[in-house]
C-alpha cells in the first residue's frame, strides 16, 4: 500500500472524481434551494391558515415525512415513468430530495416565525402595515436569524443524503468511488478520496453558516453571544443543535 498516497492524490484531481464531487454539490445545493423555497411557502401557507389549504399541507407533510426518502427517490425515478412522467436521474434525485426536505424545512420556518413575538406583529399592524408587509419586513427578517443554525444542519444532512442517489445511477461521489474501486479493488484509496471531498464540502458549509450568522446578526449583542459557536462546537453539537 506504499503507493496509496499517490493514488489518492490522483483520484482527488481526476476528472471523474471532480465531476462526481461537482454532481454531489449540485444535487445538495439545488435540492436545498428548492426545499427551502417550498418549505417557506408551506410555512407561510400554515401561517395563512385556510381550512382547505391546511388539509393539503397536512397531507403533504404526512406523505413525505412518513416514507423513507430512498423510497421517494426510487418511486419518482421508477414509478412515475410508468405513468408517462419521465425524468432524468438528476431531476428525479433533486425532485425527491427537495420535496422531502421541504417537509422538514417548513417546520423549521414555522417555529422561527412563531418565535417572533405577537407584539411585534401588533406593532407593525398598528403602523398601518398590511399583513404581508408585517410578514415581509418584521417577522421573516427576525425569523431568519433563528432558522440559520437548523438550516445549516439541514445542508450538512442533505450532503450526506445525496449519496442515496447512487441507487438510481446518478454519478455522484459515492457511486463514482464505488465504481472506481470495483475496477481495481483499491477501496481504501477511492473511498478516502471521496471522504476528503465530503469533508471539504462539510467544512465549507460550516464556514458559510457562521459567515451568514455574523452577517445577519453583525452585533456582538446578547443574541450574538449565545449563538456564536466555534467550528468544533458546531461539529460536535451538530445533531443536538436544533436551534432556539
Amino acid at each position: 500500500m506504499f503507493d496509496s498516497p499517490d493514488l489518492i492524490l490522483d483520484y482527488l484531481v481526476s476528472a471523474s472524481f471532480l465531476h462526481a464531487a461537482g454532481m454531489t454539490l449540485m444535487i445538495t445545493l439545488v435540492s436545498m434551494a428548492w426545499g427551502m423555497l417550498i418549505g417557506l411557502l408551506i410555512a407561510l401557507g400554515q401561517e395563512w391558515n385556510r381550512p382547505g389549504l391546511n388539509v393539503l399541507i397536512v397531507a403533504y407533510l404526512w406523505l413525505f415525512r412518513g416514507t423513507p426518502v430512498l423510497f421517494q427517490i426510487i418511486f419518482i425515478f421508477n414509478v412515475l415513468p410508468a405513468m408517462g412522467i419521465l425524468f432524468s436521474g438528476f431531476t428525479s434525485a433533486v425532485l425527491a430530495l427537495a420535496l422531502n426536505e421541504a417537509a422538514y424545512i417548513a417546520e423549521i420556518f414555522r417555529s422561527g416565525i412563531e418565535a417572533v413575538g405577537k407584539g411585534q406583529r401588533t406593532a407593525g399592524r398598528s403602523l398601518g402595515m398590511k399583513n404581508w408587509q408585517v410578514m415581509r419586513h418584521i417577522v421573516l427578517p427576525q425569523a431568519l436569524r433563528t432558522v440559520i443554525p437548523p438550516i445549516g444542519n439541514q445542508f450538512l444532512g442533505m450532503l450526506k443524503l445525496s449519496a442515496l442517489v447512487s441507487v438510481i445511477g446518478v454519478e455522484d461521489l459515492l457511486l463514482t468511488a464505488n465504481q472506481t474501486a470495483s475496477a481495481n479493488f483499491r477501496y481504501f484509496e477511492a473511498l478516502t478520496a471521496a471522504g476528503v471531498f465530503y469533508l471539504a464540502m462539510t467544512t465549507l458549509f460550516m464556514f458559510g453558516q457562521s459567515w451568514l450568522e455574523r452577517k445577519v446578526n453583525p452585533r456582538r449583542g446578547n443574541a450574538g453571544a449565545t449563538k456564536g459557536k466555534s467550528l468544533t462546537q458546531r461539529l460536535l453539537g451538530m445533531t443536538a443543535n436544533t436551534g432556539a
Binding site: G119, S126, P141
Partner: peptide
C-alpha cells in the same frame, strides 16, 4: 392613528 405599547415592541432586527 399611532400606538405605543407597554413593552415598547421595537423591531429587534
Amino acid at each position: 392613528v399611532a400606538m405605543v405599547f407597554q413593552n415598547f415592541e421595537l423591531f429587534q432586527h
